[in-house]
């Protein structure tokens, strides 16, 4: 289990996260919601140690993440950032680099690594694109390649910063179903989302943030009926037998 105890973090002298308390359990799909600039990405970056914390602690199975060697942590947690360079390499090569934390001397990928990368590409439905350069792909296809790289990492905790960006609605639904099945398989998945109905429909738990503070953590039903989403986003959500709708008003 990943435990966040009064987590504080930020950039330089500016604190962005002000005492976050939450848990992420294996088998759970957590969607993190909040307006732009509220600290969602900062929170996600602190979990695998990409951004240092300034206070509190993060425990992975009872041990502080700062005590883990970096590669050991990368074997447990896969992190997909929001903005990514488009490197000069093929899809297959990018996905294979998901196996980087598992590399041993002489620093070459094994046949097993290649098989795992191929499985990850098949899972994301991009096997046919393996030999194409990333620069020749659409934004959605590139996003799928990056997700396949995260899957190839075979980590217990998968942290995704806006994974549905660049994807059309069909691919967004396919991705959420995939994340659901990964969580059902025993992994913990945390994803930053902007599509409220999509997040509420597929998540086990929802974390709602505002101004660097976790204002609510609960099941989609609890979050939907609490009114917190109206407070944070100014929209009304309607729950209907496991489905969620966003009611918009034109002023």
């Amino acid at each position: 289990m990943l435990e966040l105890w009064d987590l504080r973090a930020g950039y330089g002298h500016s604190e962005v996260l002000h005492g976050i308390r939450a848990n992420l359990c294996p088998g759970q799909l957590v969607c993190i919601l909040g307006p732009n600039g509220c600290g969602k990405s900062t929170l996600l970056k602190t979990l695998p140690g990409i951004l240092p914390i300034t206070g509190g602690k993060i425990l992975l199975d009872g041990r502080a993440v700062t005590d883990y060697p970096r590669t050991a942590l990368a074997k447990r947690m896969a992190y997909l950032s929001q903005g990514r360079r488009i490197p000069a390499m093929t899809v297959g090569e990018l996905v294979l680099h998901g196996r980087f934390p598992h590399l041993q001397f002489p620093r070459r990928y094994s046949a097993e690594d290649r098989r795992i990368a191929e499985d990850a590409m098949a899972q994301m439905g991009i096997s046919a694109e393996a030999k194409r350069p990333l620069s020749a792909l659409s934004g959605g296809m590139r996003q799928s390649a990056c997700l396949a790289m995260a899957l190839a990492q075979q980590a217990d905790y998968i942290l995704l910063d806006e994974p549905t960006t660049y994807l059309d609605i069909g691919h967004q639904l396919a991705l959420m179903r995939l994340l659901r099945s990964i969580a059902d398989g025993g992994c913990a998945v945390a994803a930053i989302m902007h599509d409220l109905p999509l997040a509420l429909t597929y998540a086990d738990a929802v974390w709602v943030m505002r101004n660097g503070v976790l204002v609510m953590s609960g099941t989609p039903g609890e979050v939907c009926t609490s009114g917190v989403l109206h407070e944070v986003f100014g929209v009304d959500m309607i729950a209907d037998n496991g489905s969620y709708y966003c009611r918009l008003r034109r002023d």
Partner: peptide
């Protein structure tokens, strides 16, 4: 020539490379 994978991963960007366990 032994460090080509490291160079590729570094080229993915600071955050992605660190997320993959690189110093």
């Amino acid at each position: 020539l032994f460090l080509t994978n490291e160079l590729d991963v570094l080229g993915l960007g600071e955050e992605t490379a660190r997320g993959l366990g690189m110093h």
